[in-house]
Amino acid sequence: MPVAWVLILSSFLFSVGIYGVLARRNAVLVLMSIELMLNAANINFVVFNLLLHSISYIGQVFALFIITIAAAELGVGLAIVILIFRNRSTVSIDEVSLMKW
């Protein structure tokens, strides 16, 4: 199977994630869009591992670490979102903008 197909899929996923980050204004939706980008990187790592026949399995190991870190970050991120909601009753990024320049 041509590896380029997989890479184009992951590039698409990455770009959709960027769109979501720029176009969305709800913090949780922005978070989900970033998860798309992380998954694009994961797909790349796994398919390159297969393509290159890495004996060290570094591609798969890298993907595992990305998944772990993403979970840890999400825990902290949701704690921040809940904190903000408790204080302001909104999680919209537009409204959470007391400070400019």
Binding site: F12, S15, I18, Y19, V21, L22, A23, D94
Partner: peptide, 15 residues
């Protein structure tokens, strides 16, 4: 947000 067209252009360019 209001920046949807811009976001679409940027992400299409990246893709």
């Amino acid at each position: 947000s209001q920046t949807r067209p811009l976001a679409a252009v940027v992400s299409l360019a990246i893709f």
